[in-house]
Amino acid sequence: MNLMANILIQVIIAFLAGSLLLGLHRKIMARVQRRPGPPIIQHLLHSLKFFFKETGFPKTASKPFYIGITFILALIWIVGVIAGPVAHDSLLILFGVYAVYKIVEHNSGSSSGSPYGKLSCVRAVLSAATELPLFAAIIFVYLVTGTMNIGEIIAYQSVHGPLIFSIPLAALMFFMLIITKSPYSPFAITKDKVLISGFETEHYGLLRGFMHFSESIAWYVMLWVFLTIFFGPLTAVGYLVGMIVITFITGFINATTPIFSPNHSVMTQITIGAICFFGTILMIFTGVVA
């Protein structure tokens, strides 16, 4: 198939599947909290609706950045789709994508001039510590499989079985990242309701719709990467079931846990990361992992 057609199809799938999964996530949270909740399709409708809403750019905003940052957010997740589902390239690129995602949180908060966005921006710096478990998880995947290439990791797993069974703690670290990035997560200190919508507070109308578009792709890509590097070669149905299951689990966790204060959030993440890190090192050196 033509490469461009492949990319376009993957991006559209990522957008639609990501939107529906985020809608499902909201529905599950509502049902756990004994509310009816919006229809599953609502997140998708919202993203599209915002494109036709009245939009203005705040007088106080740092103009090229205020719009440019939403463009960068979309751009990096398109890179994510290409490096992941399309080309099966290096895992490190996805790590770079995730690092830029943090920068977007940081800058879209501060570029608007809003005090809420600014606080979200400072918190984004604090929560940069959540990077470290992801690093560790990726390095452990490398140590076990001997490659960073997603295609080769899939090939390794089809011979040796899914990595979740050999390095479960590294998978847990990665799963922590997914929880952190899910909406209403206990670790989402940059989107705390104290800060209105956090870094997105001043991005309304079209720009919010555009950010929803990118975040739907982001959710899909993160779930895809998790399923691919820990659950081995999967069919399309396998991916679908896996994504729905993970969305269910994160929905339950987020519905039942309150949001942490910034210092507790960072400390909890670092503690879980450290336990998993040393646990996996122990497993590797005692020979539990082949």
Binding site: L8, V11, K53, T70, L75, L206
Partner: peptide, 17 residues
């Protein structure tokens, strides 16, 4: 695709808003 797809969506949005 990296530059074109986001640019397409953003410019379309700037026209439809």
């Amino acid at each position: 695709s990296i530059f074109g797809i986001p640019a397409w969506v953003l410019s379309l949005g700037l026209l439809t808003m």
